[in-house]
Simulated assay, not measured.
Amino acid sequence: MYRKGEVSSLKLVAIKTNSKVLISDNVNGESYFYTKLKDYYFDGEKVTDTYHKDWFEIKTLPVKIEKQLPAKRINQRYELKEGFQVTDLTPKVINESYIDEASDFYEIKGLYDFKYETIDAGFEEIPFELTIAQEVEGEFEIIKKDFDPKYNLVDRITTHPVLLQTKPCYLSKEETYRIIRNHVKSNINPKYAKITSDYDFCFTVEKVIDLYKPYEYIVDVNSNYPRRKAKYEKRYRNVRTHKVYEAAPKPYNNYPVVESFSGKNYEDLKQNIDNFLNELMDEINEPVVECKCCKGRGVIINEN
């Protein structure tokens, strides 16, 4: 443990790597926390942001932490505004820092502009206590997280929360289902597929397959009006559908329950999610038509 200062010192926690130090003043891991580290200088330099709001990057373990003091006002005065004559009762300059009711100049205060100059007040050294939570061999970067992964109990107990991204992780079935459902809805090509069930408890996608030959059928256009005489029309169907994907977040009828996304670490988890979604959308959006040679008993995938 590195210590500098006594009771009122700034408490810090750090993760040390081969090339840098990650540092935070949220030593208790509070959910709602306002960091002060952006206001400080660590051995003369400001901290660098990371993807975690409470953690910052510095080059080495700090020897001195300082805070820049507010600039000092000097030569505070009141100067007579332009257009007013200088007299014994209204001097050009009143060398006072503040004019209140007790001042001889209070009645004429409105004729003056308050002016001053500033000088650099320098820095105040901040006493601090720093605990190294862990030293990492090699390199480590705090990465941006788009998902909320889960970790096993042992890793949660033995690993600092910031370093959990390096441990095996997985998503809940509910979040896995939500990610797949939202991605398909945002990227489906309605020319080649359509969503036929879209609920929080089940999801179905069907391929739209062009028929090798339009299918003729008859429909009664007055079927919804019992008192009207039947009126039949000949219509043609140019496509048929075939179920290509279905899923549910938990058991529901005969829907398959999604398998949770998982990975050896957070980056591997994200890569596995991206790969699955890309392959799924390639399958969903791939053009399919019935084969003309075998009169629809087979299909042709990607005519080109």
Rank of each mutant, 00 (worst) to 15 (best):
N224S: 14
Y151R: 02
Y225E: 07
E283L: 13
L10F: 10
I74S: 01
F276Q: 00
F276Y: 08
S186V: 07
I142P: 11
Y78E: 11
K185W: 05
I94P: 00
Y170I: 05
V13I: 12
F140M: 06
F84G: 11
K115P: 06
P149T: 07
N187K: 09
V299A: 07
V7P: 00
T118L: 06
G138M: 10
E107D: 09
E125L: 05
I188P: 01
A247F: 08
D43E: 02
K67N: 05
I179F: 00
K243M: 15
Y177P: 12
K64G: 06
S8Q: 08
V299W: 04
K194C: 04
L22R: 06
D100C: 12
F105I: 05
T17D: 10
R235K: 15
I58T: 14
E246A: 10
K92E: 14
T87V: 02
D282L: 12
V154T: 12
E79P: 04
K213W: 04
N253D: 05
I58P: 10
T118Q: 13
E139S: 12
Y266S: 04
E137L: 06
K11F: 00
A14P: 04
R73F: 13
S103A: 03
T204G: 03
E267K: 12
T17L: 13
E96T: 01
I143T: 12
Y170F: 13
I58V: 14
N75G: 07
D146S: 14
V93N: 04
K81A: 01
Y51A: 08
S31Y: 11
Y98F: 01
S260H: 02
E57C: 03
M1T: 10
N95M: 00
M1W: 11
K72T: 12
K72N: 09
Y51W: 13
R178N: 09
L164K: 00
E141L: 14
F56T: 13
T87Y: 01
T158W: 02
K109P: 08
F261T: 02
I65W: 13
L164S: 14
D148M: 03
F276S: 02
C169P: 11
E135Y: 10
P249F: 11
L12P: 09
K264F: 12
V93M: 05
K229A: 15
G138F: 09
E290W: 08
R77I: 01
A230Y: 07
P226N: 07
F147W: 06
D88Q: 12
I301Y: 15
E57R: 05
N265Y: 05
V257H: 09
P161M: 03
I142H: 11
Q271D: 12
E57K: 05
T48A: 03
R3P: 07
